[in-house]
Amino acid sequence: MARLEGKVAFITGAARGQGRSHAVRLAEEGAAIVAMDICDQIPTVFYPMAGSDDLAETERLVEEAGGSIVTSVGDVRNLDDVRAAYEAGISAFGKVDIVLPNAGIMPVIGPGEQRQAWHDAIDVMLTGVWHTLEVTVPDLVARGEGGSIIITSSAAGLSSIGLNTFPGQAGYSAAKHGVVGLMRLYAKQLAPHSIRVNTVHPTGVDTPMVANAEYGAFLNANPDVAADESYKNPMPVELIDSVDISNAIVFLASDEARYITGVTFPVDAGYNIR
């Protein structure tokens, strides 16, 4: 039997990158997928963000893996958008068991006028997580069948190593640390309901959010950043694959992790042991 047979997972930021990988990997393990993505550009983000074609490709790949999926376009910064995506999933599948607040942006390289990047980073990766919890937790509690919430943080959510203080990077760091606080709060409150809440902390992942021409140009123009050893993993890998995070999420969402809650789960090639 597949490890997540009969489960339904609600995933934000699912159009590509880690979110797509999570959707496909969970579908391979038997879960139905409720996928949400903004499918639009946020002006302070320096690389091209996912579009509706990307979300359609996630749908195709989930179905190719044998899974069922319902998709919605929406912005996690807008509580009503999150609620509409969730309700579409409830209409299709009747429940949600697994919640993956995964939507993220990387507005890290611009100083000066990029001050709005601070607000966008916080709004997407901290307020957006809170919105997702606000929408999903009441039903998880009411159903009385437990559940698993796994929030995407970052290796940068456990350490200040390798960070600059441009507004976008400062917001990114603050948000990724902030969701750890949310996780611990909700883990304590939801433990009596057998709802587990954890964070995952990837090092750099080979997705369009990190591996893009714009960031490459920034590194070329700033060789001191490119040469900074604090960005490098102790294990001999520059970027890990999305599926490495997805495999950890499958474990944390499964009954194999039924008594694991309140943990910061690193998948970081040793980033935080330097």
Rank of each mutant, 00 (worst) to 15 (best):
M1L: 03
M1R: 14
A2E: 10
A2P: 15
E5K: 15
E5R: 15
G6P: 08
G6I: 15
K7W: 07
K7A: 06
F10V: 02
T12L: 05
A15C: 02
R20A: 02
R20Y: 05
A23G: 08
A23C: 09
V24T: 03
A35G: 07
D37S: 10
F46I: 06
Y47G: 01
P48L: 06
M49G: 10
L55A: 07
A56V: 03
E59S: 06
R60W: 08
A65H: 06
S68W: 10
S72F: 13
L79R: 13
D81H: 15
D81L: 03
A85Y: 01
I90G: 05
S91Y: 04
V96T: 11
I98R: 12
I98E: 14
A103P: 05
A103H: 04
I105C: 02
I105N: 09
P107L: 11
Q116C: 02
A117D: 03
A121Y: 00
A121F: 05
I122E: 04
L126M: 15
T127M: 10
T127Y: 07
V129E: 08
H131Q: 14
E134H: 07
V135H: 05
R143F: 08
E145G: 00
S148M: 10
I149Y: 01
A155H: 00
L158A: 15
T165A: 15
Q169V: 01
A170K: 09
Y172R: 08
S173E: 08
S173V: 10
K176A: 05
H177I: 00
L182W: 12
R184Y: 01
A187V: 05
P192V: 13
H193G: 04
R196S: 13
T199G: 14
G204A: 10
V205K: 00
D206C: 02
P208V: 14
V210F: 09
G216E: 12
A217D: 12
N220V: 08
D224Q: 15
D224F: 09
S230F: 02
S230A: 15
Y231K: 09
P234D: 00
E238W: 13
L239G: 00
V243K: 11
S246F: 03
I249F: 00
A257D: 06
R258S: 14
R258N: 14
I260W: 03
G262S: 04
V263M: 00
T264S: 09
N272K: 06
R274Q: 10
